[in-house]
Computed example of a mutant assay.
Amino acid sequence: MSSRAAIRYAKAVLEQANQGNIANVVFDDMQSVYATIEGSKELRSVLKSPVVKAEDKKEALVKIFENNSEVTKGLIQILTTNKRINLLGGVAESYISLYNESQGVKVANVTTAVALSSELETEVLAKVKQLTGSSQVTIHNTIDESILGGFILRVGDLQYDASIANKLGKIKREFSKSL
């Protein structure tokens, strides 16, 4: 979950991108930024490190994201100037969420014990479209073996937990109540 500061930066970036009619380009940039930061433990450590100079962080990020838009490069500059560069991943995550919301796209987060099959993914898409009334739905599948089986579906602030771990937990609570 992004911080309030990251959300504020993301709103400002989205507004700037909308004014320049490049919101979709910046959306692609932010997906790239988020995936890069989430995929690299070393990069996250460098961004959070008080030992690494802000200018060094900025130089590294500008090199990593040199093919991105000027809006994205400007965001890196502003975050560096304001000593908030560690928020970059959160800003990217918030921007993606805000952009999807502005486009009417619903994001369904599905947590399963194994990867979703194409048939199950189609079934989940249809169910989410029925529940939300939105024709634009994307699915993000997270694999968590601790749920044992079944799935956990989150769309916005709605959650449906049909995991085996949840059902076993309910049975355990019922047994402990009856003792």
Rank of each mutant, 00 (worst) to 15 (best):
P50R: 01
S97K: 07
G74Y: 01
V91L: 04
E42V: 04
K127Y: 03
D157R: 00
V25T: 14
N24R: 05
R84A: 11
S69L: 09
V155P: 01
I78A: 07
K172V: 15
R4Y: 06
G74F: 00
K41W: 04
I37N: 03
A5D: 11
Q31P: 02
D28T: 04
S94C: 07
T138K: 04
K106E: 14
A12G: 11
Q159M: 11
L148P: 14
T132Q: 06
S94P: 06
Q77F: 02
E59D: 13
N67M: 11
V25E: 15
Q136W: 00
S45P: 06
G150I: 06
L120H: 11
L120T: 14
G150N: 07
Q16I: 14
A54V: 10
K58H: 09
T36E: 08
D157F: 00
Q136V: 11
E121I: 07
K11Y: 03
D56G: 01
K73A: 06
E123Q: 15
A12M: 03
Y95V: 13
G149R: 02
Q130T: 15
K48H: 10
Y95E: 07
S45A: 13
A35S: 08
V26G: 13
V137W: 02
L75F: 03
G74H: 01
L14A: 03
V110D: 08
N109I: 14
T36S: 15
V105N: 12
Q159L: 11
A35F: 01
S134L: 08
G39A: 13
G169C: 10
E121Q: 10
A162F: 00
H140F: 00
G74K: 02
F27H: 05
D28K: 06
R44H: 01
Q159W: 00
M1D: 09
L125K: 09
D56K: 05
G89N: 06
L14K: 05
E70C: 02
K172R: 14
Q16M: 15
T80W: 01
E55A: 09
I78Y: 00
A60P: 06
K53E: 12
V155N: 05
S118Q: 14
I22P: 13
G89F: 00
N141D: 12
S135F: 02
D161P: 11
L158F: 06
T80L: 03
A54W: 00
L168I: 14
V114E: 08
L75G: 09
E66L: 01
K83M: 09
T122Y: 00
N100I: 08
G74M: 02
I164D: 12
Q103L: 10
V137P: 04
D161C: 06
Y34I: 01
V124H: 03
